[in-house]
Design a protein around this nucleic acid. Sequence first.
DNA 1: GTCTATAAGATGATAGAC
DNA 2: GTCTATCATCTTATAGAC
Lengths: 193, 193
Amino acid sequence: MASIAPTADRILDIAEDLVQTRGYEAFSYADIADALSIRKASIHYHYASKAELTRALAARYRAAFAARLLQVEAEFPDPTRRLMRYVRLFQDALREGDHMCLYGMLASDAGTLPEAVRTEVNGFFADQEAWLARVLAEGRAREEFRFDGRPDAAAAALLAGLEGAMLVARSRRDVAHFAAVASRLVGSLTSGG
Amino acid sequence: MASIAPTADRILDIAEDLVQTRGYEAFSYADIADALSIRKASIHYHYASKAELTRALAARYRAAFAARLLQVEAEFPDPTRRLMRYVRLFQDALREGDHMCLYGMLASDAGTLPEAVRTEVNGFFADQEAWLARVLAEGRAREEFRFDGRPDAAAAALLAGLEGAMLVARSRRDVAHFAAVASRLVGSLTSGG
DNA sequence: GTCTATAAGATGATAGAC
DNA sequence: GTCTATCATCTTATAGAC
């Protein structure tokens, strides 16, 4: 499947895995070249610099995630199920417990990230908070959710909880830890104040 | 103040700042040598390897944080104030919004961290959750806090929320974002289910 | 589009003088 | 305890043949 994709895409596939497991600073053109059995120079043909490669990777992931959210909205009309599916999307990113969400990892690399990538990171988080705020607002209107204050504030806290849970769970290589924290975060919206 | 401390300590001071802003992979002996106006070889005299330097840094931070928690307990007898002070400790680690909590950063580097440091990271998180669980349990017994389920589960969710809020806030260079999420997390314990 | 070859610089680390 | 000098290796990146 990956082997029939164009080289430019396969490069991003490998890079995505490397960023999720090692971070921006700890992956190299040599790692990608080895994984694909090509030469480093070939990667430079497709992506002139590491900054450009990472920017392309971030943009692809952001677009794919946005598309998946549209799918979720089409598939699940009710806010509760939408939210549960959203949490599942995050949990899947953890894989066996050794991957971090791509954007969570890039956020941790914010201090050394090329500016174009950094802008993309903040845009991604803004996307997530906006989407969650809409789901939460609708859920409260339907009396499926209960929470205090503005939906965007509740959305920011939920996103932070999910990202932090991934960070801690991955350090422990423990997907169950993420699942437990996530269900508590969702539970506090569906059953309390 | 830093300039009268022994070299071994000053090395860790600089390393701490570098890890908090750049992460494990993105700091080097050369960075520390430049900051202290000494040579790289002098650093190797104090810490034979980068792994050993980072392990020493992690151990120092963990011990210092534990000591600060004892101070908080001595100073504030009531759970609500203890918790507010705890959140403050985290917020201070952000500095101007460009530092991550040392252990949050190390957790994000889990994929490439020397095993000894990684063990230290999970120990630190266990420390935090245990301390928070005790504060939460006592707060619920005194009817200052309200939450469902076991105190350790609530503690895990709170810690995850704080770490995630730091991650997102730092990416945005926005301390206020952390403060807003943190006060919402605390608020959900003091005023709701 | 992929290759070989190469560049200029950084990396963690060591030997041995002072 | 700090220095100079050096090491092998890795990094991103480029030139030019095929």
